[in-house]
Structures are given as structure tokens and as C-alpha cells.
Nucleic acid binder design. Sequence first.
DNA 1: CACGGCTTCTGACATTTGTCATGCCGAGTG
DNA 2: CACTCGGCATGACAAATGTCAGAAGCCGTG
Lengths: 204, 204
Amino acid sequence: MSGPVRLLLADDEHLIRGALATLLSLEDDLVIVAEAATGPEALAMARAHQPDVAVLDLQMPGADGVKVATALRAELPGCRVLIVTSHGRPGHLKRALEAGVRGFVPKTVSAQRLAEIIRTVHGGNRYVDPELAADAIAAGDSPLTAREAEVLELAADGAPVAEIAERAALSQGTVRNYLSSAVSKLGAENRHAAVRLARSRGWV
Amino acid sequence: MSGPVRLLLADDEHLIRGALATLLSLEDDLVIVAEAATGPEALAMARAHQPDVAVLDLQMPGADGVKVATALRAELPGCRVLIVTSHGRPGHLKRALEAGVRGFVPKTVSAQRLAEIIRTVHGGNRYVDPELAADAIAAGDSPLTAREAEVLELAADGAPVAEIAERAALSQGTVRNYLSSAVSKLGAENRHAAVRLARSRGWV
DNA sequence: CACGGCTTCTGACATTTGTCATGCCGAGTG
DNA sequence: CACTCGGCATGACAAATGTCAGAAGCCGTG
């Protein structure tokens, strides 16, 4: 009914991006119109080339896949976004979906499958890797309140409470309370373990 | 003078591995004789197919690239090992070189370059990405003693001193002393920041 | 409007850390 | 052999953290 699917490929690893570009080009109905290695670059390329589907890596320098997806949603509503990732954390999937992403797959799929999924997404349907979806469901929603998550994030690099308090413009006591409740909600031993746990679930 | 270079490709991401396999196959003098998705699998494949060069991802389930390289060194001395990685930490490079790895490159290189490097390595020469090499030199050697590193590693998941002491079969006081000296050697604020720092340098 | 949940704070307490001084033993070095 | 360094330990003190109770304001829902 129409021409080939026009693709934007964004991944910071040349090796993967190039290889992917070659493989996907082998498909008759797919054509790569642009490539990018960073978030901002992906955005610029999308504006310039108006792709039908943007295949984005989740972790890129500059701005991650979800951020790019959000911006794309506003600027190019017609462009479908498909996120590809190595380390799919449950929380990322949720945020991606909220950002209007149409597909979310791990890099463990084959190029064949990816091509099919690109077609699915282009057709207006959604596709989420079943395993990642199961993980996300199993992990559930973050039990943390906004502030708890914020404070936990500031604690992520091992900063002392005093520093966290300053950066969050809170009193030290409040910070300790938030940390304490976050730790107990997550069932962690201490805040550092809590950070790791929240990280692994993609809640921070 | 001889036939094509026989390659083993190991990477847990099908997408990348498959794409890479296709791209490298395009080169007349390279042929992929085996693929693997995990460390142990890579080892088994190497034993079965006796490749000339093993292209290994640094991070794989089961056993990382360096571990596989060490095993390969012993079992198949004729097999040259080339490590490819996304996140190249300085310490990894050092350990890889100690394991007899002949090449170490980031995934940001192009397939063309990779093919050239594979030939270089096959020819008995070494190749280390200049940028990674510079990072490794800048980061220098770990100032930590073996025990300090060990204790720091046990502290990595936020475990309390008591647990570290038990797992390391040391007294709590000793653990604290080691942690303390590690923290001061690394110039960190506290042990958690120290862990992060050591991690980023690949010293743990 | 009353209730519950989130945010924010204070203060007090117990526990966990980080730091330091000090000591002993074994291995390697000049 | 004396010296140094790393590994291991104690004990003691100060600082940071974790835990609790209590209290006030704000917001949305029933």
C-alpha cells in the first residue's frame, strides 16, 4: 500500500549500529534513512529525515532512549518508537511505555525477529518482549513516594546524609526518615543495598 | 599462504552476534566457524571447532571474556583472543592482557576496523584501542593490596561490616581497618564511594 | 468535612561506621 | 640480622546512620 518503512537507527556502538544497518537493509521493505550515536543526534536526525520508525538504544550518551522518545512524541507524532536494550530493567519498560514507546525488546532477539517487530510497530501495533514484560509485572510498581525516590537517588553515589540534605534542600532528619522508610519498604539491609535494589528494578 | 581465518564469535546479544557474523562473513578471508552466547558455551565451542581467533564479549553470562581467555590460553595456545567490549574499564584491559589476550577494542569501532584488527591479531600482533590504553595508563595500577580489594569487593553490595567480616573470615576490626585504608588510598568520602571508584577503574 | 496519605520537621536513642593507636607474626630485602 | 611491609587483631573514641515517636500543614477522596 505504501513505500518501504523508513528507519532511524540510534546506538552509540558503531559496531552494532553498522551491523544492524546492514542486516536490516537486507529486508526489502526496510530502508535506513538515518543513523545516530547519541540522544541529541538522534533527535536532530529524526527532525531532518522524518523516519517512520525510530529504533533507539536505551543507553546512549546525551539523552537516553526514553528521553528521546518523549521528545519525538511531541515533535513527530507520526514516528513510531522502538526501544532496543541490553539490560532491560523493569522500571525502564514502564517509563518507556509512558513515553509513548511502541516497542521494547532486548538485544538478544535475532535480526529477523527485529525486522518483524519493526513491521509490527510500523503497523500501529505494540510489541513488548514477553520476558521483559513478565519481569516488569513481577517487579510491580515502585512502592516509593516521589521524595523517597529522589532522596534515594541522591544517596546513590555514597554521599553522606549532610550532602544529600543540602542537595535536596531538606533537613538531615527528614533525609534520614525518607531513607529509612525507603529502606524498609524495599526490605533492604541499609540504604546502599536499597539503592542497588531500586536500581536493579529501574525505580530510580 | 593459508586458508581463511577461522573465527569463534561469543556475545550474549543475538542481535549483535548475528549482525556481526553476517558482516564479518562478507570479508573473503574471514569465516565464522562457531558462535556462543555464554562463557562456558564459548569454551565448549572453541574446543570443538579450534578457531584461529576468538572474538569475545567482555560481559557474558557464566564466565566473562577474561576468564574464557585464560582457559583458552591453557587449552588452545594457538587460538588468539580478541576482546570486544561496550564499557571498557581500565582494570579490565590490564587483566585481559595478563590473561594473554591479543586484542582489546570497544564496540564503537566499525566492522571494517574490526575485520582489520582480527587480521592483525591473527598475524600474531597485538592491538589495543588507543583510547582505552590511554585510560588505563591514566588510571594507573590499583593502589590496593589484595586483601583491601577483597574486602572492598565484599562491601560492594552494601553489606554491613559484620557480614563482610564473616564472609571474609576476618574480625570486624580488621575489616574496618582495610576498608578505612582502601577509602583513604582511593581518596573517597566513604567506603561506598570507594567501591564505586574502584569499580569505575576496574580495580575490583 | 473528616480521614488518610505525603511531606516536612524536631529531638532522642541505639547501632554502625570511620579513625587511630598499638601490637604480633611472617616474608622479603638490604 | 635489622628493617619494612602486608596481614591480622584489639580496644577506644568520635562521627555518621538507622530507628522511633510525635507533630504540623497540604491535598484529594469519600
